[in-house]
């Protein structure tokens, strides 16, 4: 699979003769009538098909927000499931318009892969999950452990650093998909499963007996997860970036999918600009002026997205923590929409 992806990417760069500075993704998406969005192959809470085959999750909602902004309809998305190794080549080769797949924003990725990260949809950090039977309560007790990880992730690099720093040895067992990683952990091939903490909670509910495993307290890295787009198309870059900011701004302003229709008629100039009743923000971004209204109406504000997919009342039960608004002690912050 991944080989085909890489070969396709290689062929794509080799054979596209038209060296354009703007391959206008937005026009392509509008013409096509739907957005092609790269997501994971199945990670509950982030991007996972439900039992009817509808994709759901926080990363999926980011795709939907962009579709709502670009096309006025959040449901006009085609999801392309990608494992960690396939994701960047899929974006580079144009197989997808944007990648929204729990992907960490790093300097190397930003500078060498020909892509741009548009923001942070979830602040995360890498952690460890062990079986309770192992009797371990800290990651520092893991010397000599066998660790299941997924190939092509930042996880692989952080793990090596952490064990080296602490003078511990480990054996990495590297799988291509999260399903295989979970299976390996469950069957006892590994003592430890390591990944971003949010994903550990997500993968834990995939275990036959979730209560048999626990997540260790250590967080060993910064993993800002966010959407990314191809480099060199600023219009599209702006739209994806501001779609996420719009969801955060809506939460700051107290706009929700339930009250946005009613608030639309308020006299508050901020709200008026936001919903497109005033100003030309949509035009500046190349979309309809009610783009932000559509995001909130159809997908919800950031808080709603968070709570619906990974929040306290979901199987993942994650607290807002770092992902609370900046005004509530978290890191989620949007530049002013004006």
């Amino acid at each position: 699979m991944k080989k085909i992806g890489s070969v396709a990417a290689a062929a794509a760069v080799a054979l596209t003769f038209s060296v354009q500075s703007h391959s206008a993704t937005l026009d392509t998406v509008k013409e096509r009538g739907y957005l092609q969005c790269g997501v994971s192959t199945g990670l509950p809470g982030f991007s996972n098909p439900d039992d009817k085959g509808n994709w759901q999750g926080l990363d999926v909602d980011v795709c939907r927000a962009v579709a709502a902004a670009a096309l006025g309809d959040a449901s006009k998305v085609k999801y392309v499931p990608l494992n960690a190794k396939e994701r960047f080549t899929a974006l580079q080769s144009g197989e997808i318009d944007m990648l929204s797949r729990n992907t960490t924003w790093t300097l190397t990725r930003d500078t060498t892969l020909g892509l741009n990260f548009t923001g942070v949809s979830y602040y995360d950090g890498q952690g460890f999950m062990v079986s309770k039977k192992l009797g371990v309560s800290s990651a520092l007790e893991l010397d000599g452990a066998t660790v299941c990880i997924q190939a092509g992730t930042t996880t692989e690099l952080n793990l090596a650093d952490y064990f080296r720093q602490n003078n511990m040895t480990y054996q990495p067992v590297v799988f291509d998909t999260s399903d295989q990683t979970v299976q390996g952990f469950e069957a006892g091939r590994c003592d430890v499963l390591t990944s971003d903490q949010s994903q550990l909670y997500a993968l834990r509910i995939k275990l036959a007996d979730p209560s048999s495993a626990m997540v260790l307290p250590e967080v060993i890295s910064k993993e800002p997860l966010g959407p990314s787009v191809r480099q060199g198309d600023d219009q599209w870059f702006n739209l994806v970036k501001w779609s996420l900011f719009a969801a955060v701004t809506a939460e700051e302003m107290g706009l929700t999918s339930a009250n946005v229709d009613q608030m639309k008629n308020s006299d508050n100039p901020d709200v008026k600009r936001f919903t497109g009743a005033e100003g030309d923000f949509g035009k500046a971004l190349g979309v309809n002026n009610d783009w932000a209204y559509q995001i909130v109406k159809q997908v919800g504000n950031y808080g709603e997205i968070f709570e619906r997919n990974v929040g306290a009342n979901t199987p993942l039960g994650i607290a807002r923590g770092l992902n609370a608004l900046w005004s509530k002690g978290g890191l989620q912050y949007a530049p002013p929409m004006r």
Partner: peptide, 24 residues
């Protein structure tokens, strides 16, 4: 690579490719 044996395709055309992004 399907079962995680670290052969040339899994290590080099897999992880190394992904970490460096130099597919070609």
């Amino acid at each position: 690579t399907a079962i995680g044996y670290p052969d040339l395709v899994s290590v080099f055309a897999g992880t190394t490719l992904n970490q460096t992004g130099q597919a070609v």
